[in-house]
Design a binder for these strands. Sequence first.
DNA 1: CGACGAATGGGGAGCGCCACCCATTTCGAG
DNA 2: CTCGAAATGGGTGGCGCTCCCCATTCGTCG
Lengths: 214, 214
Amino acid sequence: MIRILLADDHALVRRGVRLILEQEPDLCVVAEAADGAEAVAALRAHQVDLAILDIAMPVMTGLQAAREIARHREPPRVLMLSMHDNEQYFFQALKAGASGYVLKSVADEDLLDAVRATMRGDAFVYPGAMGSLARDYLDRLRRGERVPDTVLTSREDQVLKLVAEGRTSKEIAEDLTISLRTVERHRENILAKLGMRDRTQLTRYAIRAGLIEP
Amino acid sequence: MIRILLADDHALVRRGVRLILEQEPDLCVVAEAADGAEAVAALRAHQVDLAILDIAMPVMTGLQAAREIARHREPPRVLMLSMHDNEQYFFQALKAGASGYVLKSVADEDLLDAVRATMRGDAFVYPGAMGSLARDYLDRLRRGERVPDTVLTSREDQVLKLVAEGRTSKEIAEDLTISLRTVERHRENILAKLGMRDRTQLTRYAIRAGLIEP
DNA sequence: CGACGAATGGGGAGCGCCACCCATTTCGAG
DNA sequence: CTCGAAATGGGTGGCGCTCCCCATTCGTCG
């Protein structure tokens, strides 16, 4: 019997996925959560074998929750649920310690396959239409190549979130109690790392990355 | 027997909502669609009493599909499914001829209630946590007051889309072969109408409105 | 017809954003 | 211990964005 924690901010989606999962006799959803913080809390209250986390959730995103969960003594497996076939997400899920990455656009059989593959201990699972960048990445991993780490630092993530929310550099500097120049420095580094040129692209990226809600 | 068309770009969500609906003996999902264009096409092929449309879909959004459907001779009822409790969406759904507006964050019973209320011919339905602005709006409608039309013009929509994609005013002016000053004029009007102050907020709005993908 | 909104265009002021240059401190990995 | 990466801070210049002012030409609706 596989005990599952299901986290998604939309009750309707949660209910639907639960019905899909519980059509299988050996799968049982023992807890639900509407955001990342609830998910982490639920893990303390319930014995869970597998956590299925939506990426885009308020309060704490699925990615943040996965990082938190990975620090436990006996962490459950983690399957990330995502809206879009986005490579940045995929990389971050990988780094956050997830065992799989499933798109909401896949069929229900693919979700069930991913659940079983993950519980068997298979390597990183990504069923359905796999993006070419993601496939390249997994191929290179299997060949033992190391890949450049393009992910932002935690401070840059923090600044990016505020930028994408529409705050000005001055406001961000006051929030973080650092100099205006340092905020602008972080912004420059973020733009350069992501190959972008202005705030609007950062906003869309932050939404894709689950840092903010649309 | 109520025959339902279900349109959502995520197969997993579609499957889940279908399971919720078909727990009721008198509800039957006779067709599914992954975008607005498919939904409109499916209506020609099937006899449908109720169309449940997700707002955010590729190719053609649920709002565009609803406007299209409203032009039919005997249009089915339309229930909009939305991710967020956003007033702009709500207004647009109303104008597009929808009979109801249901948040994905509501419980499954609320969805079923909305389906039945809509089929009974009840006025605009909005179960669950209703935003204060939306409630005001419906109250004023019931009292017969007329409300100001805050929706953007088609030209403004066009400019907004390009702004949200990160194009500069100069680039937009070249695209639309109009003056730089006219583009800036449109931008000012858009910001004023929506009560926003910069491009990042416009980007998030455009994503919520389904004008662009994240 | 007259009024109003939509679309078009212009000038100017102020500030935020982004790109380029420079630096120091701290901390962890090799 | 040394080297690099992360975080901190400074200066300068150009251009984009936003907010004021102004205008004309169309439609449409009462």
